[in-house]
Design a protein around this nucleic acid. Structure first.
Length: 157
DNA sequence: GCCAACGTTGGC
DNA sequence: GCCAACGTTGGC
């Protein structure tokens, strides 16, 4: 049994928010078309890993909820669907290019933990999350980063 | 294999 | 809407 890992996964709430995840309970995290993010899902994620759901490209960017990895990696079915925005004609079922995992909702934070507050955490100084120009939609989090971010929850706004 | 052009991400 | 940063593409 591998040790539990921690992740941060971005989503645009206009498209799919923490409330949407709460409604469906579990969601195949499809549409990731970046090789490094794919490698994280395919190679490094395991059921039970902790996931912070991060809202991006929205009025209030920040961590909006907690979820967990709920499946092993498997091929993203949207890559084979001609009608999908995520269709990839270079990918075949015999040799899929894109993989995903299912993500299961655990809880929605009462208040979004804003990016500015996260950036202000000394413990997060070495996290890729606060690095300049970070565009990866899936990021690994050290356990200490996970704890430091969620510790902000206790503080009044 | 290099690198310029282009497209996308994402905070502000 | 702006702009910086980054990944991908494609000509050579």
């Amino acid at each position: 049994m591998a040790r539990k890992r921690y992740w941060l996964m971005k989503t645009e709430p206009d498209t799919f928010s923490i409330d949407d995840l709460a409604r469906v309970g579990s969601e195949p995290w499809n549409g990731v078309r970046n090789y490094q993010a794919r490698n994280y899902m395919r190679d490094d994620m395991h059921p039970g890993d902790g996931v912070l759901i991060y809202h991006s490209s929205c009025p209030q960017p920040g961590v909006a909820g907690v979820a967990k990895v709920a499946s092993a990696a498997y091929p993203d079915p949207t890559q084979f669907d001609r009608r999908s925005d995520y269709y990839d004609q270079a990918s075949t079922p015999q040799q899929p290019r894109w993989y995903l995992v299912d993500i299961a909702w655990e809880r929605t934070l009462e208040q979004v933990i804003g990016l500015a507050d996260i950036k202000a955490l000394p413990a997060l100084a070495d996290s890729p999350l606060v690095a300049r120009g970070n565009r990866l939609s899936i990021l690994p989090l050290a356990a200490a980063h996970w704890r430091a971010i969620l510790a902000l929850e206790a503080k009044p706004a």
